[in-house]
Simulated assay, not measured.
Amino acid sequence: MLSLIKLPRVFTINQVPKVFHEDSIISGYRHPRSSATDCILSLFQLTNETLNIWTHFLPTWYFLWKLVTVVLIQRAWQDSFTWPLLIFLLSSCIYPLASSCAHTFSTMSARARHICFFFDYGALSFYSLGSAVAYSAYVFPDKWVNSLFHRSYVPIAVLNTVICTTLSCYSRLGLPFLQYNHDTVTRFPEFQRPKFSKYLRVVAFAYPYLFDNIPLFYRVFLCVGEGCTDNETNILHLYHISLALLTGFLFATHLPERLAPGSFDYIGHSHQLFHVCGILGTHFQMKALEQDMMIRRPWLLEHSLPITFTNSLGAAIFCVVLNLVIIVLYSLPLLSGPVCKEKKHDLRPKKSSAKVGRCC
């Protein structure tokens, strides 16, 4: 069937605008003004984005199955103790789905690329909050339960999601409504100072991760003696921490493709490995949370903070609303700005020319 469909052609790095360039990736680029149909068809051909998409799209269904299991079998709506796990699983469904959609449709235009990844960043920051809500409910070591830090933990995590989404969006666009240029959407911080934008993005996501894991790091690495919650779940937490650190390393270093540009364009480049390690880390994180929830439930119900709508579902809803507001504020200058002539005249890839040229 697919043999009867003409798949979109791919290009080299010199044939696409700089805003679409990936560090040390030389070939396999899709047309920078692809139609939505072309973007979907590209899922079934080998480009430098194909595995980025599938490595997040397929796990979405696994986490969705786990979410449905909690809702239907554990009857989450009747048991507030499972609400934090529900929020974590929901965030674990949203972030890979948002990522796969962003990678799929990011070549429709430079504007679409920015907006797609704004949603990707918002989904990741929501995942950070989902982790924090679940950690607050199930992971805090016994001696920290009900402490001042524990009571402040979720509100600070909500603030961190706002900081995370704002910084990551800023790394692409700068200040909304101030950085838009009248003839192009590529004169943004990411285009002018790509290394600074990359560093800023790393900080934007590393900061909430490190904060969220303060109780876990203390529990696993520092705490000794009574009240340290040293149980069989800790090994699962160690697997998650190891994979999370590897994920951050791959994102920041662009290895292995930086060692051999062009050799890992289609299979094996850092972003694909980053996706795989991130999903595996989330899997072990989920297993650890489920196990902590079951093992510690009697003690936590008696001694820990009560799980309420405000510190669980309410915090999640508030975070989603704030993230959407931030994304809209950053997207409006792109949506309301003038459309360049090339985009007006031709939304389809050009068949005859190898050069793509400048485009919005």
Rank of each mutant, 00 (worst) to 15 (best):
W65A: 12
D38Y: 13
S35M: 09
Y29T: 09
H31I: 00
I13Y: 05
F44K: 09
L43V: 14
L67M: 10
T55F: 00
E49M: 11
T50L: 05
V10W: 02
W65H: 11
S42G: 11
T47F: 02
S35Q: 09
G28L: 06
H21N: 05
T47Q: 07
R33G: 01
T12M: 01
H31Y: 14
E49F: 07
F44M: 04
W65K: 10
R30V: 00
I25H: 05
F11N: 07
A36M: 12
S24V: 12
W54C: 08
T50D: 00
S42L: 04
I40D: 03
T60H: 06
T50S: 12
Q15P: 07
S34A: 14
Q15W: 01
S24G: 11
K18T: 05
S42A: 14
D38G: 14
N48R: 07
W65C: 12
L51I: 15
Q45A: 01
V16T: 02
S35C: 01
L51D: 02
I26D: 02
F63S: 06
S42W: 08
L41H: 06
L41N: 10
T37Y: 09
H31R: 03
G28P: 05
S27I: 13
F44E: 00
F11K: 04
L51W: 06
Q45E: 13
L43M: 14
I26P: 04
G28V: 03
V10K: 10
T47I: 09
P32E: 04
K66W: 02
E22H: 15
E49D: 12
W54M: 11
K66N: 04
K66Y: 03
E22V: 04
W54R: 06
H21Y: 12
I25P: 08
R33P: 02
H31L: 00
I40P: 07
I25M: 06
Q15F: 03
H31K: 13
F11P: 05
Q15E: 13
S27M: 15
P17T: 14
V16S: 00
